[in-house]
């Protein structure tokens, strides 16, 4: 081939393989959706996965939430008191947690804590031919292994996000009201006056569900198609965290523009 055309061919190859991978993800997703009834009917499968990815993330999520809320309170107070409106601290903390930080940080933590573990687990199953063996025994690995883990992420992320937000608001209450001494009534009443349940809380939860779908899909996909080597599983795990984090942040931008465009 012509030397000059070589870089162009490289570019084409990159684009084509990216598209092929995207198509693979899409087909994989449809494959999961087709067998999603199994973890719902055999509930114990789902419960086990929710335990490992959701319940075991409880500590990291609530502690992170607590500290994020406390830091927000300290920094927010610093700025707000210059304008003599330190009572608005509750509004600042609650809105930023409910709308953005809660779902996003929870999703990032979840991708690091549970998504990577899922990828490594499935990748190792694939590398040791456990999934192939399951297929041989006429057990559908998609329904038995993949779907419950995917669904567990979709279920866990919103619950964890709720806990993260609550812990964050509690942390800001501790710092703002108990430590700094903002009026407790104003803290809560201004918060209640400006946080709308449908507009803010429900939209935040919708975000969390979408992030759960993204992380669940990416982590099981990377594990399922991980090269069956130690190196392959390790790079698949890394890719899960990187791709999930980027996907969460990009999706967050899209969802924010879509949800809060008409606002403020």
């Amino acid at each position: 081939m012509n030397r000059l055309l070589e870089p162009l061919a490289d570019l084409g190859h990159v684009v084509l393989s990216a598209l092929a991978r995207l198509g693979l993800v899409g087909r994989f997703f449809l494959g999961i959706l087709a067998v999603l009834w199994l973890p719902i009917r055999r509930f114990s499968l789902l419960v086990r996965e929710v335990y490992f990815s959701g319940f075991r993330s409880l500590l990291i999520v609530t502690v992170s939430g607590l500290f994020v809320g406390m830091v927000l309170a300290v920094q927010g107070y610093e700025v707000l008191q210059r304008f003599g409106s330190a009572e608005s601290l509750g509004v600042l903390v609650a809105l930023s947690l409910v709308r953005e930080l809660g779902p996003v940080v929870t999703a990032l933590l979840f991708a690091g804590r549970a998504g990577s573990a899922t990828t490594a687990e499935i990748g190792l199953m694939q590398a040791t031919d456990q999934i192939a063996a399951m297929d041989m025994m006429a057990v559908n690995p998609m329904a038995r292994i993949i779907a419950p883990r995917f669904l567990a992420a979709v279920v866990s992320v919103p619950i964890l996000a709720c806990l993260f937000i609550s812990a964050g608001i509690f942390g800001s209450y501790l710092v703002g009201v108990q430590l700094i001494g903002i009026d407790e009534g104003a803290f809560w009443s201004q918060m209640q006056a400006s946080v709308d349940f449908r507009l803010d809380v429900i939209n935040g939860l919708i975000k969390a569900v979408v992030f759960g779908v993204a992380i669940g899909l990416i982590s099981v996909f990377e594990g399922y198609y991980a090269p069956p080597t130690a190196e392959g599983v390790s790079s698949a795990t890394t890719r899960t965290v990187v791709v999930s984090s980027l996907a969460v942040l990009m999706l967050d931008f899209v969802l924010t523009v879509w949800m809060f465009r008409g606002l403020s």
Binding site: A94, I165, S166, I169, Q192, A193, V195, F197, D200, V201
Partner: peptide, 9 residues
């Protein structure tokens, strides 16, 4: 908690 204490439900 979010609905009753933080939000205005």
């Amino acid at each position: 908690f979010l609905a009753l204490k933080v939000g205005n439900l």
